[in-house]
Computed example of a mutant assay.
Amino acid sequence: MTESSRSATSDPFWRCAMCGTPNPSRTYLTQCLGCGGPVSAAIVTAVADREATPPRRGRWIALATAVYAVFILVILALIAWVGEDWWGVTVLLFVPRWLYLAPVAVLALASGLRRKPSHWIMQGTVGLIVAGPLMGFSFSTAQFWSPRVEGTSFRILTYNLGPGPIDSHRLIQMIERERIDLICLQENVEVNLAFKAYLDRGWHRDRSKRLASRYPIVAHLDSLEDQSTNDGWYSAQLDRVRIRTPQGLEFVIATAHLPTIRPGLNGVLNGDLTRLPLQIQWWRTQLGRVVSRMSETGNVPILIGGDFNMPSDDSSMATVRSVFRFAFEDAGRGYGYTRPSRFPWFRIDHLLASPHWTFTRCWVGNDCGSDHLPLIAEVVLPPTGQPAVPSPR
């Protein structure tokens, strides 16, 4: 085979052996563009074979994209239906989920280099699934399409003050700017003297000092009994009070703090797989105690704010959603991550309400020094006190 025919089988151009002119590899070209000499039969055959054979370039990228799409769907199914029943899924719950976007970006770049833009449709779909359901993106249409909810409006804040120093001035400014009516606190509630002094002026507080209300407290309800052990198994905390507004409406507000499973997760990183399942079971037991105690209020409207130490898409938290409404899922926009405060990637702080209430807004507050971010919601209680229609998402 001549040099010109050999080039035609693989290159978009072939070079004429007589005059050296490069010619495009096309079946309709019968003469050299330079010297006008006839094209050899070998070149015509090679070009025809080349055009008849579909290019295999980039097939591995399409296959890898399909495999990754199945992987993402499996992850979603495990989180929704298995949850903490298997410790491996619990680890997935706390992994930064934006990491799942990295393979999509690599595959999209490879498709671009291989000149396969058609792959971007599937890759874009996988990216939307990751950035949407997997990362917990919420977009409530309640603020745009739902009719105005009639009733008394309140603004509630839940905040785990954490171990670090709190910027009291910034926290107080946020509470006043956002016109907060009800506050649910967890951890170190009496450490910051400036913030304590602020709450002691004009706010009604419960005996545990974890709850604060601009409305009078008419009853202190029983707290959850402490079941903490000496070997580091911490009990859930739950404090409740009954509030009465000037209009005569009464409701219960509660603050909850469930035990963390961080030691078990750290054990997995260190190769110890025995502690995490035990801590998960302990957490589920404590969650059951909290839900059972909150359900004792009967038909009285109740608001709960707290650090549940578990993302809301966990299967056990989904069970809680069948009893209570979640503020951010009902009325939030975006991701609403609250932990860690510097570079948050998951939300373990939640605001819940009985079906009597309707959440109209929910958002994350400013960083005031804790390792958590505060979560704020606006919620409406109809004058009848009857369960309201669920807000569309």
Rank of each mutant, 00 (worst) to 15 (best):
L29C: 05
A377M: 11
Y159F: 15
T27M: 03
I348H: 11
T338P: 07
I180M: 10
Q186P: 02
A212S: 15
W81M: 14
R293E: 14
G288P: 07
F308V: 04
T45L: 06
N230V: 11
S292V: 01
I183Y: 04
L161V: 11
G334S: 00
A256Y: 09
V364G: 07
S341N: 08
R325K: 13
T125E: 04
W14F: 11
L193M: 10
S391P: 07
A77W: 13
A131H: 08
D167K: 12
Q281M: 11
D167I: 09
T319R: 03
D330G: 04
V74L: 14
P387T: 08
A62G: 13
P22T: 07
S295N: 15
V268R: 12
V323I: 14
L238F: 08
T319I: 03
R214E: 13
R170V: 00
P163V: 06
I217A: 06
V70Q: 01
I180N: 03
A105H: 14
P374Q: 02
P277S: 07
L193E: 10
A388F: 09
V389I: 02
I304S: 05
T2M: 09
F144A: 03
L101E: 15
R293L: 15
E187L: 09
W357Q: 10
V380D: 14
I156P: 00
L381N: 05
H356V: 06
L109S: 03
G334V: 02
F137P: 04
P311Q: 09
R242V: 07
R242C: 04
F71Q: 13
V44L: 04
E190K: 09
R275Y: 03
T360V: 12
G58F: 02
F13C: 07
S370N: 11
G271P: 12
N192C: 06
P259I: 04
P103N: 05
F137V: 11
F94T: 02
V323G: 01
I166D: 07
L63W: 15
W363N: 11
S140L: 01
L278F: 07
L134P: 03
G88A: 14
V39F: 02
C184W: 04
V89K: 13
L128N: 12
Y68A: 05
V191I: 12
T27C: 02
T285E: 15
R293T: 12
F94W: 10
W81R: 15
E250Q: 13
P12R: 08
Y234C: 10
E178P: 08
N266D: 12
L157Q: 09
R210M: 15
H257D: 02
S40D: 12
A254T: 13
P133R: 04
P103G: 04
V379H: 00
G127I: 12
R339F: 04
L113W: 14
G306Y: 00
L99S: 13
I253A: 06
T2F: 09
P55M: 07
Q286E: 15
G271Q: 15
S140V: 01
S168E: 00
G36F: 06
P133I: 03
